[in-house]
Design a protein around this nucleic acid. Structure first.
Lengths: 246, 246
DNA sequence: CAGTGGTCTAGACCACGGT
DNA sequence: CCGTGGTCTAGACCACTGA
């Protein structure tokens, strides 16, 4: 038995699935760091005691899921979470020269509170359980672009309590991973059109009643547990999204 | 050599790619009908003179692309194009009881015209080439939902000239395939927010200046040639879309 | 050059669906 | 029962990368 966790899950699943799960667990545990290579297919086949084709299929699954990346002649690498585009794919945030802008994330509010029934449902936790609430404003070039309200289960993210307000990063997901060890593997966004009101309108510098695109997102960890729920509001005039249908 | 077209493309490509292309061509030609099974993997391996694993990989590609569907114990089947949801996935069209509604497609205008430079670019044809212009209104329960302006290359779709106005189907893509033999394999949608004006506003029964979601779509055939370009406008209040990010 | 992933083969046995 | 796709093995050779 090698250094990797060889406790394969559920005996009834196909071998390649169990290998997949074992590798996914290794990535989630941080046994292999993001950007670093995992052992070669030959080596893994030996350690798991399975054929090379079986390991290849397991790895192919993880590549399709976006967790791993193959580079011929070099190895197979743990992908760095690339959620830079995940919000901004919906909006046109570009400088006059067409270059992409990474909007600054300004923390407006932070507190620990009890989960409302709605939030509890989204996060799949008890109603009334402790959650961290964050209120942020995304600003580029001095112009407000998006307001975000977001909630995290406190038991998973209590390490954030020790971060000073000024030390928060623009991008939260890499920060979650670095500070709390929880990587975001996937997310589901639900888009609707709404109207800006009250504080949200004021912070976006829009008239009350202006159309805004509302994006409700649930973000999931490597084990499929909800890690975060957020509601983002952005000026609908800037909305722009491309999707491929099959 | 069997009944399938065994002229495999480009000698330098991997075998499984060439098999994939050959199978895709068979589907495009209509050698195998939608909904019907293709020959078994064993049989195909024999006819192509390759190993079973190679055929399996080729088929896996086509399954991932949505052209084929595997059913264990039964066979591998040509998927019926399911574009029923492709537009409606963006909007909430539901009856009071929550059931999905298939809005009726009302043909308002039809003519053959010369492609503007813009349309020509989208359809990848000569500017000034003949195109079919269609103007449609989607109506559910008497309420207008979406207006559509769409253009088709006349040389591919001239068979539509012989269809009477009253005989147009609600769903165009199956009709394209039935009447003209051109199946839509995929499409790319680009969504932005706009304002309803003039005729569009009137037909949607919205005040001029009301926010509308604008969906610009290019639809492609099995050979990747653009078949249709359309601009659809829908009441932004009804907009609702869910997307999974990885 | 050695080591990696990429392609391809030839076979075995299992799980499922219909006769 | 047979024929289908699903899993798994063991091994070959190719293509790419970097020392």
């Amino acid at each position: 038995m090698g250094s990797i966790s060889t406790h394969m899950t559920d005996e009834r699943l196909p071998l390649y699935q169990r290998v997949r799960d074992s590798l996914a667990a290794g990535i989630a545990d941080g046994a292999w760091k993001a950007g670093a290579p995992i052992p070669s297919e030959q080596k893994l086949a030996g350690e798991f005691g399975v054929a090379l084709g079986t390991v290849r299929r397991a790895i192919t699954e993880l590549v399709d899921e976006g967790l791993l990346e193959r580079r011929q002649g070099k190895g197979t690498f743990v992908r760095t979470a690339e959620f830079r585009n995940s919000l901004f794919r919906f909006f046109r945030f570009r400088a006059d020269d067409g270059a992409e802008i990474l909007p600054e994330g300004r923390l407006l509010e932070r507190r620990v509170e009890k989960a409302s029934p709605e939030i509890a449902q989204y996060l799949d936790i008890r109603s009334g359980a402790r959650v961290i609430y964050l209120h942020r404003l995304r600003v580029a070039d001095g112009a407000p672009l998006v307001v975000e309200h977001l909630w995290l289960p406190h038991d998973l993210f209590n390490a954030l309590d020790r971060i000073a307000d000024a030390d928060w990063d623009d991008l939260l997901y890499p920060m979650y991973e670095r500070v709390c060890g929880h990587a975001v593997a996937r997310a589901r966004d639900h888009l609707t059109l709404g109207r800006a009101t009250g504080n949200d309108a004021r912070q976006l510098k829009l008239k009350s009643g202006s159309p805004v695109v509302q994006i409700e997102r649930t973000a999931y960890g490597l084990n499929d547990r909800p890690l975060e729920w957020r509601r983002s509001l952005g000026n609908a005039e800037l909305f722009s999204y491309t999707v491929d249908l099959k």
